[in-house]
């Protein structure tokens, strides 16, 4: 068929018309609705109840997680140590003003997510971006869908490899990298193909939120501290004030039949010799530490060091970790104190 014939065929396509009655009705609606649409519509506020409700639920959940967490570290052993230690522990806890360790991670996470959420609400209202309650995310196109699927597969592979091959436990760092890349890619695809929907702004905000989390987590996990810095809050923990140190060597019992048998005490000894106490402190002071979340598997064999008469409850020495007042630190380099205890140098 020639181009001319095709042109003619297209030109001869019929045209529909609106009836005069329809036109009257439509015009009436246009004049009326144009006035109302100029005012910002807050009627859809009901749609926001779901995300606001979920945010409050998340905050509540986080608080439930944070508050018992602050006490967890000492609760298990309090029963064994009588009211004196209980009151000491309570004093220590009340002296802590800033969140640390897991609490700090959670607080940081919630703050960033809350700011990102508020920003998305503002952007949605300002640009009139609809929020589809309980809808499944629809990808822009097939390339987008395949791209996201590929990213998810890469993330799962890297996570499994890092966990099982390289024993990397900081899952949340990987998750923050993954979410940053995924949301960055999503916002790019939405910007490229569905710019007028403005959804890319929302993805960009969430992506930036995850990027902030990644930077924060990186700072937390790479930041090196020393024993001196950690115990700076506890003035009485120093070689001068410490007269007696009690050390307990514990191990997890793999054949345990009840909760009471889970930990076995292998050895217990008391150090009263001033020189040995000084050696212990100087060994502790030489160690560089990084705050970390500890896994159950890292707790095989450990030593609990009790400083009698000081305002710190206990320091637990694991093969690669140090636990001070229920916060966990990974030892950078050799764990000299663990080696000393294992070799019986402090006995």
């Amino acid at each position: 068929m020639s181009n001319d014939k095709l042109d003619k065929k297209m030109e001869s396509m019929p045209h529909a018309h609106l009836s005069p009655k329809q036109k009257e009705k439509m015009l009436h609606t246009i004049i009326n609705q144009a006035d109302t649409e100029q005012k910002p519509s807050w009627k859809k506020a009901g749609g926001w109840l779901a995300p606001i409700g979920s945010t409050f639920a998340v905050i509540l959940f986080a608080f439930i997680l944070i508050f018992p967490n602050a006490n967890d570290g000492n609760q298990a052993s309090l029963e064994e140590n009588g009211p004196e230690e209980i009151s000491q522990t309570e004093n220590v806890l009340s002296s802590i003003q800033l969140p640390t360790g897991t609490d700090l991670y959670l607080l940081f996470f919630i703050t960033v997510m809350l700011i990102a959420f508020i920003l998305t609400v503002i952007i949605r209202i300002k640009h009139k971006i609809p929020y589809d309650f309980l809808s499944v995310y629809r990808h822009v196109n097939k390339t987008h869908k395949r791209g996201e699927l590929l990213l998810i597969l890469i993330f799962i592979t890297i996570t499994l490899l890092s966990f099982f091959v390289f024993s990397y436990r900081e899952f949340y760092v990987l998750l923050s990298i993954f979410c940053t890349i995924l949301l960055g890619y999503r916002s790019y695809m939405e910007f490229k193909h569905e710019r007028e929907e403005k959804e890319f702004m929302i993805s960009l905000i969430w992506g930036s939120g995850w990027f902030t989390l990644f930077i924060g987590f990186l700072f937390f996990t790479l930041h090196i501290t020393t024993f001196d810095e950690v115990i700076a809050n506890y003035e009485s923990v120093n070689p001068e004030n410490t007269q007696v140190i009690e050390i307990e060597n514990n191990a997890w019992n793999e054949d345990a039949t009840s909760l009471l048998d889970e930990i076995i005490t292998k050895e217990e000894f008391i150090i009263e010799d001033k020189e040995t106490i000084n050696d212990l402190f100087s060994a502790l002071n030489t160690m560089d530490l990084r705050q970390r979340i500890m896994q159950h598997g890292d707790k095989d064999n450990y030593y609990s060091i009790y400083f009698k008469g000081s305002d710190i409850y206990a320091i637990t020495v694991y093969e690669q970790y140090l636990s001070i007042d229920s916060q966990h630190y990974k030892v950078v380099g050799n764990n000299i104190i663990y080696e000393m205890l294992e070799n019986g140098e402090l006995d």
Binding site: L18, Q22, M26, L27, T29, I30, I31, Q33, A34, E37, Q38
Partner: peptide, 14 residues
């Protein structure tokens, strides 16, 4: 598509 025709003119008016 009548609603869309209306929307075109509403947007034009605004």
């Amino acid at each position: 598509v009548e609603d869309l025709v209306q929307e075109v003119f509403i947007r034009a008016m605004n």
